[in-house]
């Protein structure tokens, strides 16, 4: 087992499992975000954010989530470095093969998504958790962080919206290859199911990306 985790296939297994875990997390995150614009008030969103921030199980899961991110990132970097080392001299004319376009830029999209993630954490998560300079709002006689207003304020800024959308488009590129690739890494390849998995991957990517992008657009233009 010790060799397994350092082997090329073992590392890919971790990448794919972590990746798929993050894929499910994105769905949860999107659901909460959407509650901000679906409901008339920010209450559901703020309550959901509160729940996510205070519930013991969720808090435990938070570590898992960070673990997932870290694993995915660390292993991604390690794999990429090894891959670069595997070809010390590059070609004059690079590979032209007609294969998955997005697969060639996973590390590039990943780096930008990571930058986004860091900014995102500073903007919301860390603010709420440690800095405490988040306005308070009272629902049913209880204090809640009004994270909703924070989001809306952000999305009223045009450049933020543009940056946000750009990052999610890159995330889409990342997912378009990553989703189906994870299954291949897990050894799942079947002449009937693989096309299905690929289709689900595309639908998921479009849906999630569209969902995340819709929020700032909505906030910017209509709220």
């Amino acid at each position: 087992m010790s060799n397994f985790l350092t082997s090329s296939i073992g590392k890919k297994l971790i990448m794919s499992l972590a990746g798929l875990f993050l894929v499910t997390f994105l769905l949860v995150h999107l659901g909460i975000n959407l509650s901000l614009i679906i409901a008339d008030s920010r209450e559901p969103f703020n309550k959901a954010a509160h729940f996510m921030g205070t519930n013991v199980i969720v808090k435990a899961l938070e570590f898992v989530l960070f673990g997932g991110f870290l694993l995915h990132m660390i292993y991604g970097v390690v794999l990429q470095l090894q891959n670069w080392f595997a070809r010390p001299t590059r070609y004059k004319k690079e590979n032209y093969s007609q294969t998955s376009f997005f697969s060639k830029f996973m590390i590039h999209t990943a780096v930008i998504i990571t930058v986004f993630l860091v900014i995102h954490l500073f903007d919301f998560y860390l603010k709420a958790k440690f800095f405490g300079d988040v306005p308070l709002v009272v629902y049913d006689g209880k204090d809640y962080h009004d994270l909703g207003i924070l989001v809306i304020e952000k999305f009223k800024l045009g450049w933020v919206v543009v940056f946000y959308i750009a990052c999610f488009l890159l995330l889409a590129f990342h997912l378009l290859h990553g989703f189906q690739s994870a299954f291949q890494s897990l050894g799942i390849n079947h002449k009937t199911y693989t096309p299905l998995i690929k289709a689900i991957g595309v639908i998921y990517t479009i849906a999630v990306t569209a969902g995340f992008i819709f929020i700032p657009v909505y906030v910017y233009f209509w709220m």
């Binding site: 060799n3 082997s7 296939i9 590392k11 590979n95 697969s103 290859h177 690739s181």
Partner: peptide, 17 residues
């Protein structure tokens, strides 16, 4: 697989090339 890794080949990222 161990030999493949040891020899310094890269990791598969399922590009399909």
């Amino acid at each position: 697989v161990a030999k493949m890794d040891e020899l310094g080949f890269g990791n598969c990222t399922n590009t399909g090339a």
